[in-house]
Write a protein that binds this DNA or RNA. Structure first.
Length: 109
RNA sequence: UAAGUCGACCAUUUGAUCGCAUCUUAAUAGAUGAGGAAAGUCCGAGCUCCAAAGGAUAGGAUGCCGGGUAACGCCCGGUGGAGGCAACUCCCAGGCUAGUGCCACAGAAAUAUACCGCCUCUAAAUGAGGUAAGGGUGAAAAGGUAAGGUAAGAGCUUACCGGAUUUUAGGUAACUAAAAUGCCAGGUAAACCCCAUUCGGAGUAAGUCCAAAUAGGAAGAAUAAAAGAGUUAUCCGCUUUUCUUCGGGUAAGGACGCAUGACUAAACAGGCAACUGUUUGGCUAGAUAGAUGAUCAAAUAAUACAGAACUCGGCUUACAGGUCGGCUUAUUUU
């Protein structure tokens, strides 16, 4: 899984893309012209919780992304996930359903 | 058995599949991978760079005594004070006899006093003097109680208690005990201050090395050499050139620092202890937008607080549930 790293790249996605949201997560999706692998950015703010909680969220999201990459085939996107406050209460299965919903909304799968 | 008190420890484990980071390997693959507080960043050090003749002043920190330690504001042992029936716990615990400041209100008087009262003198008094026993005010009124003593009184005298000073004895010391003298005299230093000890600054984004890039500029120097324009030519000056300095931009470049250390376990020796020494053994995170997750199965009390970022020693704060031990008090039984 390749990641978006620089502030410039994040801003580029925020300004030029469509966003989709559920109660727990927000998704930004930008299609890039060059044919390359998907790149992901995860954003979990300090308001969500302490370091342990934020780390756990990011790890779960990464695992979910990995599973979807394996299952479906889509390419050349920059994708950003933003965690919202209520996401803390979800378990892994519920989070996975939420992400699937977002992907459907965005027309990826 | 109950209540209490002190101390130590655990902080999930095992297997399977998929995935991440580091290391090993030609490769398949294999090994390892967050804490008791990793936290707060409150002290103390190592390490690195910068600064630095020496001294004084200012400023900060610490503050009973002795010991431990690389060091400390930490730890251990003791002394004094406070709390508890006790085990035990708590204490920013130097100096007000260096100086200065402050102590409301009440009260006659607050570091000095005679308002009422008592006693004496005088023919008598609203006068003069003596007196701190009694009253009243206050947080505090010249040490308390009893007896003697006296005109009335008073450490004026005596006994006991309290306090101060001196001496002697014990203790490394803080301090403790006894005796003598004899009652001269408040509190506050978390008030200024005084005394003793101590303190250079910045932090791993420290810093070291390598690579890449030195475009277009600014300032200064040199005309030794070369070129150009102007000039008949030379000199001189100008532009280019050469050298030095300055600042700007790109790649959030790479490697080291960076994981064996004032480390730790056991035994033995020294010490009441903190701790120290010797021998044998152990060491298995090291990222750089930042690695530990998902699913299934089994066991368990393991559900809390919580995520390494240069490294150590402490302190402080957060914390579910559980295990073990010492001691105290009460009750019951033998």
């Amino acid at each position: 899984m390749e990641t978006l790293k620089k502030n410039k790249e994040f801003n580029n996605v925020y300004n030029n893309s469509n966003s989709f949201a559920t109660r727990h997560l927000v998704l930004y999706l930008l299609s890039v012209p060059e044919n390359e692998n998907n790149r992901y950015g995860l954003s979990v703010s300090k308001r969500i919780g302490n370091a342990v909680i934020r780390n756990k969220l990011k790890r779960r999201l990464r695992e979910i992304i990995r599973e979807f990459e394996k299952k479906y085939n889509f390419n050349s996107y920059h994708i950003i996930f933003i965690a919202r406050n209520p996401v803390v209460d979800l378990n892994y299965g519920q989070m996975k359903k939420d992400v699937k919903k977002l992907y459907k909304k965005a027309g990826l799968i």
